[in-house]
Write a protein that binds this DNA or RNA. Structure first.
Length: 897
DNA sequence: GGAACTACGT
């Protein structure tokens, strides 16, 4: 009965009657002589022959007049005639004739239930399920076949609930399903999640003794397994007296879907013991699951293994692996495999193409993307919606909005993905007007927007700097539509504020979302954390850390990595180590972050010993590792070791050194006073030095008092960054110290040309849960007279001969009579004006710290037993010491900055 | 018994 007829899945009238069929059938009778000629006198037997001929050769529409003439003669049309005609209607998708036949069959009781059932199945198989149901409901008598036709039709149309409801009606009517219908009903129970109904059927079958059939047991097992009820599935599996490949596949794929890949593997490995060999399908289940869970390499090994067992991977095998690689950011491997698959002569499916296109999208690899596009066209996937959608996305991500738009325009059918991809593309590129235009069109074409659309629009507005529109949309979503805002909606706002440096507003949104019971996710963490990577944000980081712990987000490596990095930058190196030690899986970023953290804190020994461990147990060191490691050697003056590390980059690790490495080596040589070598090193670099390199040399020359070379480095630096006020100021000092009088004039001209404005010196300090701002000569703070006198008294103590710096006092940043640098106000405030004596002080400054303040900070750290962390956010030499850590009268920078 | 892919937020 079920002959796998080609039935359109949905009721699409245009597809229901293929237009070519009519012509084909019209031409035929003209070219051949009819076998019999029809005359009025022919008896019913001849009529039947005629109708049989029409059934086979058409045109079907002629059958109606034949039937009418039979009725006109007062004879009866035999049921088998109707059956044959309806069967032909199904085969040709000719619902019009079917309808005419239906009108003639009617609902008269005398007419066979068999014929009426055929009408139901005719409608259903032509794609008119509602007509089928109408006929079914009007029927006075229904047998097992009638129920089967109706239930089968609903099942094909995935109307699972309806199938289950029909089943109960059927039972009430006293009709019991057979071996063919039961699997459909059980499948429906599973797919609509009605396990109660499923269990009921199961127990019913046990009571009736029908559960002995392997086919039905497999159906029940599948129902449980697909629904994640693996305990039930396993119990049934163990109780089954006979098992076949279907049984094993069902249990294996059940465990796979649950993510219990190891258990699935166990079954896979033992099935042959029962004499059942894994075939292609079974291998594919396992491979797909490994791929899906990100174990791409295991999946790959399995594919090779199945080949060695003589089983050729099919398009499903390849596609699983390709999309597995694509989804795990191993996009290049995915594309290579696609090539291999095409070479093996396997035709891709729409899903293969979709995965490959998305790989190109994330790689922003337009050329390959275009190739994939042409493969898609060649293979005839132009009407495959996910393929079109992924191509639109690919072109958008590659910045080819026009091509994306043309793919979009050519798509006959558009779904929510199509619209969202195109709208998202315009939003990302900042074309909010275009996005909005499409947004309107989308609603006109009856595709209602979803949360993805809204979120894309919100982030589009924010990227455009249109905070009001974004906020307005954010507020309107839940009011105007029934769509609920999700974490991504909040994340869009957060990243929008962060983009414009409004960290506090972003944090406000972060707190608000939690009070709205919206769960922050790893994206929230990963956007907020970098914004808190400064010395005054320690408390914020702990807040985010706490949230990550509560939400179990620390298990995500990226979050843990970011926390390591951020904590280190807030002046805390204990937490990063603890997080590092607690991580079950570490990647290169994990190792590099902690190593860089140690270097940042001046802990060269820890950095180097971690590097040692990394080489033994960790991932292969990368460029970033070496940039930190050379600084670690630099800090402790191990020049030879540092140079050796540098040369090993090329020799051992085949990494081409980058500017970061050259800069580190300049620092290494310069710090130890090997200024000429440093200069030679710069001159012999195969790449053009950037400002970080000249800055490293300038710093070294200042410390080692080679003012001639300092001026040279400073001038190169100024060439590269003509608007940098700090460089300008340092250079002026160098000229003064070197005794040059003409050059400053040249510099002043430079100054005029670039209209440099000296930034207002200010600093921030987190203290007793507040962030305070201080500016030069800050008299606005309470009790400032008290603070000033403290500062003056401290100054006397500090001015005592400093054995470390010797007699050299640099004439830089001299505080004038009335001016007091902002960090001194901060020290005073923290130590005098606070109720408790602080253990540590954390300050972020917008400019560089001067020598006098540095000396003061060292003194305070000793005299008050208080650690001070200070960073100049405008620090122009970002080498090893990103910040100063004062402790026991010493600074982590070893007076080198 | 019958697989999987695409869109927002870093």
């Amino acid at each position: 009965m079920d002959k796998n007829l080609i039935i359109p899945r949905q009721s699409r009238p245009s597809m229901a009657i293929p237009s070519h069929i009519g012509t084909q059938f019209e031409l035929f009778p003209k070219s051949t002589k009819p076998i019999v000629s029809f005359t009025e006198r022919n008896d019913s037997k001849l009529t039947d022959i005629r109708l049989n001929y029409i059934c086979k050769n058409g045109p079907l529409s002629e059958a109606i007049s034949v039937i009418d003439s039979i009725a006109h003669r007062g004879s009866k049309v035999r049921p088998s005639t109707y059956i044959n005609l309806l069967e032909s209607c199904i085969e040709t998708g000719c619902v019009e004739v079917g309808r005419e036949l239906h009108a003639r069959i009617g609902l008269v009781k005398e007419v066979d239930c068999f014929v009426q059932t055929k009408v139901v199945s005719m409608y259903a198989k032509c794609g008119y399920l509602d007509d089928a149901r109408k006929m079914f409901d009007e029927m006075r008598e229904r047998n097992l076949f009638t129920w089967s036709a109706m239930i089968g039709a609903c099942s094909r149309d995935k109307r699972w609930r309806e199938v289950v409801d029909l089943f109960f009606n059927m039972m009430e009517a006293g009709v019991f399903p057979d071996d063919f219908l039961l699997p459909k009903i059980l499948q429906a129970c599973g797919n609509c999640g009605d396990f109660e109904a499923g269990k009921l059927i199961h127990s019913l079958l046990i009571r009736c003794g029908m559960n002995c059939s392997l086919r039905i047991n497999n159906s029940i097992l599948t129902m449980y397994a697909k629904g994640g009820k693996l305990d039930m599935a396993k119990r049934l599996f163990d109780n089954m007296d006979k098992r076949d490949r279907v049984t094993w596949n069902a249990i294996i794929s059940g465990y796979c879907q649950k993510g219990e890949i190891e258990l699935a593997r166990k079954y896979f490995d033992t099935m042959h013991e029962e004499g059942i060999e894994a075939r292609l399908r079974t291998w594919n289940i396992l491979i797909a699951s490994y791929s899906h869970l990100g174990h791409c390499d295991v999946a790959m090994d399995l594919m090779r293994k199945m080949e060695s067992f003589g089983i050729t991977p099919d398009v499903f095998t390849w596609t699983s692996i390709i999309s597995g690689f694509a989804q795990n950011s191993r996009t290049i491997e995915a594309l290579v495999l696609l090539g291999e698959m095409l070479l093996a002569g396997i035709e891709p499916t729409g899903i293969t193409i979709t995965s490959a296109a998305s790989a190109c999208a994330s790689l922003k690899s337009l050329n390959t993307g275009v190739e994939i596009h042409s493969v898609a066209v060649k293979m005839g996937f132009v009407d495959h919606m996910p393929v079109g959608n992924s191509l639109i996305d690919m072109y958008c991500k590659c910045g080819e909005l026009e091509t994306a738009q043309s793919v979009f325009d050519m798509m006959l059918e558009k779904d929510i993905y199509t619209w969202n991809s195109m709208i998202g593309g315009y939003c990302q590129a900042g074309y909010c007007g275009k996005a909005h235009e499409l947004f309107m069109k989308m609603q006109d074409s009856n595709v209602p927007p979803n949360i993805i659309t809204w979120n894309a629009m919100i982030s589009g507005y924010i990227k455009n700097g249109d905070e009001d529109q974004a906020m307005d949309l954010f507020q309107r979503i839940e009011k105007d539509s029934k769509i609920k805002r999700n974490t991504a909606s909040w994340n869009s706002l957060i990243s929008g504020y962060l983009q414009f440096g409004q960290t506090d507003k972003a944090l406000g949104i972060f707190r608000q979302m939690q009070s709205f019971h919206v769960r922050p996710n790893s994206v929230t963490m990963l956007s907020l954390l970098p914004a808190c990577a400064n010395l005054v944000s320690g408390k914020k980081v702990r807040e985010i850390h706490g949230c990550a712990l509560r939400r179990n987000l620390l298990s995500e490596r990226a979050v843990a990595n970011s926390l390591i990095d951020t904590y280190a930058k807030t002046g805390n190196i204990m937490y990063p180590r603890a997080i590092f030690d607690g991580m079950s899986s570490k990647d290169i970023i994990t190792w590099n972050s902690l190593i860089a953290g140690y270097v940042l804190h001046g802990c060269s020994e820890s950095a180097l010993s971690l590097f040692d461990q990394m080489r033994k147990f960790g991932p292969r060191p990368s460029r970033g590792t070496f940039a930190s490691i050379i600084y670690a050697y630099s800090l402790v003056g191990m020049v030879d070791e540092g140079m050796h590390a540098f040369s090993s980059i090329v020799e051992h690790y085949q990494i081409r050194p980058g500017l970061e490495h050259y800069s580190a080596v300049t620092d290494l040589l310069g710090r130890s006073g090997r200024l000429v070598e440093a200069m030679e090193f710069i001159e012999n670099m195969p790449v053009e030095p950037d400002s970080s390199i000249w800055a490293a040399l300038l710093t070294a020359c200042r410390i080692h008092k080679n003012y001639g070379l300092a001026i040279y480095a400073g001038e190169r630096l100024l060439d590269l960054e003509p608007k940098n006020f700090l460089i300008h100021k340092l250079l002026l000092q160098m000229y003064a110290l070197f005794g040059k009088s003409e050059d400053p004039l040249k510099l002043r001209k430079h100054e005029k040309e670039n209209t440099m404005v000296k930034p207002l010196e200010e600093c921030w300090m987190e203290f007793e849960n507040m962030v305070y701002t201080f500016v030069v000569s800050d008299r606005s703070k309470p009790c400032s007279d008290k603070l000033l006198s403290w500062i003056q008294r401290i100054a006397i103590d500090v001015k005592r001969p400093d054995p470390e710096s010797g007699i050299w006092i640099e004439e830089e940043d001299k505080e004038d009579v009335s001016g007091v640098h902002c960090e001194k106000w901060a020290f005073a405030f923290a130590l005098i004006d606070s109720r408790s004596s602080p253990q540590s002080i954390r300050i972020v400054k917008n400019l560089r710290m001067c020598r006098d303040c540095h000396r003061t900070a060292k003194y305070i750290s000793k005299a008050y037993g208080c650690e001070i962390y200070l960073s100049g956010s405008n620090c122009f030499h970002r080498g090893a010491n990103y910040f100063h850590h004062f402790k026991h009268g010493h600074c982590s920078c070893q007076d080198y900055w």
